[in-house]
Simulated assay, not measured.
Amino acid sequence: MGFLLLILGIALWIGAHVFKRVAPERRAAMGDKGRGVIAALLGLSLLLIILGYRGAGFINVWYPPEWMVHINNVLMLFAFYSFGIGASKGRHAQKIRHPQLTAVKIWAVAHLIANGDLASIVLFGSMLGWAVAEVILINKAVPVWEKPSEIRPNGDVKNAIISAVLYVIVAGIHVLLGVYPFG
């Protein structure tokens, strides 16, 4: 049942995100109410993904070396930092067009190299594929990127601090859930 919930959650996540790209007229016709519907679908998808991932039986596919955990942890710092680039409006906001999708790709790769079980491969592999496809769809729809004009002088520093704090919080949540991200 765990794998079924995981796959349903992933499909719902991808469908809710890609809907705007593949059916822009239909999404626009939904108006502001559509935002609530999409948000509810994304919330449901996250719940299904979490329940499915936690409930999936452990099926080992490969055995990553223990030192991959350390690479995962370093990559996760970059993922947190990348996720906040757009909001921080520092200099890096003018260098990375899709900072949140870049963060998802880093997060997925980091977890794929540190986890060798089937549920992890399904979850993180599908999220990596979704993030790559989403970037392609966005770039196709809007080929010319207008870099942000507003730059905050200390935006990158604030982002680094916030990213480090969030990293510690998320690592703590992993520990509370019985997953030890530091080996």
Rank of each mutant, 00 (worst) to 15 (best):
F78Q: 03
V165Y: 01
V157R: 05
D32E: 13
L112R: 08
G34N: 12
S88R: 05
V22K: 10
I7Y: 07
G31H: 07
R91D: 08
W67T: 15
W62G: 10
L118H: 04
G84N: 00
L42T: 12
Y180T: 15
L42V: 10
S120R: 02
L5K: 09
K20R: 12
S163H: 03
H174N: 11
A79I: 01
G36L: 11
G43Q: 06
G90C: 04
V22E: 04
E134R: 06
K33R: 12
N154M: 08
L51Q: 07
S82Q: 09
M1T: 15
H70L: 13
G155R: 13
A119H: 03
R35G: 12
H92C: 06
I169N: 09
P153Q: 12
F19W: 06
L166P: 00
L166T: 10
F3Y: 13
F83W: 01
Y81W: 08
A160Y: 07
G34R: 03
W145T: 13
L75S: 09
L101G: 04
V179W: 06
A16D: 08
I169C: 10
H92Y: 10
G86A: 13
R97F: 08
G84W: 01
W145M: 06
V165S: 03
K89V: 03
V135K: 00
F78A: 14
Y167F: 15
L47D: 12
A114H: 00
W145Q: 06
G86H: 05
A141D: 14
I121E: 02
V157W: 01
H92I: 14
N139I: 15
M68L: 07
A164P: 15
G15S: 11
G90E: 04
R152H: 14
E146G: 06
K140C: 10
I136P: 04
K95Q: 11
P153I: 13
P65L: 01
F124G: 03
W107N: 02
F58E: 15
I96Y: 06
A103T: 13
R26M: 14
K20E: 11
D156M: 06
N72A: 05
A56E: 03
A141M: 09
W107G: 04
V74D: 01
V142Q: 12
R21C: 08
F182N: 12
N154P: 00
H70W: 14
L4H: 13
K95Y: 09
I10M: 02
